[in-house]
Design a protein around this nucleic acid. Sequence first.
DNA 1: AGACTGACGATCC
DNA 2: GGGATCGCCAGTC
Length: 104
Amino acid sequence: MSQRLNDNRIYEILSVVGEIPAGKVATYGQIARLAGLERHARLVGKVLGMSEYYGVYPCHRVVNHIGRLAPGWPEQQALLREEGVELKANGHVDLARYQWDCDA
DNA sequence: AGACTGACGATCC
DNA sequence: GGGATCGCCAGTC
C-alpha cells in the first residue's frame, strides 16, 4: 500500500540498495545517483526510513557521506560490524575502505 | 494550495 | 579533521 512516495522511485532506490555487497556500505548520494536521483539523497533516506522493506533490502548498509549511521537506529552499528565493517571511535564508518565501489 | 521537515551533500570557516 | 551554514527536491502535515 502506501504509495506515499512514487512507487517507481522507491523501486529504483531499493533495487540499488539490494545490490550493495555484504561488508560494504554506500552513501545516500551514491545510491541516489545510481537510481537516477542524484540530488535526492534525502529521498533515499525517507524511503529507507519507512523501512517496510527492511529484511528484504539491506538498508543497514546505507550511511551518509561522512560515514555516520542512521540516528535513532543503534542496531545498525551491530549489523554492520557483523559484516566486517568496523566503525571509528566517533561512530563513523571507514568509507575509505568500506564504501561500495559500484562502478566508479 | 502552502509551509515545514528531512536516515543528505557540498562548501565555508 | 570537525563544526556550522546553505542549498536541493520531494514528501508529509
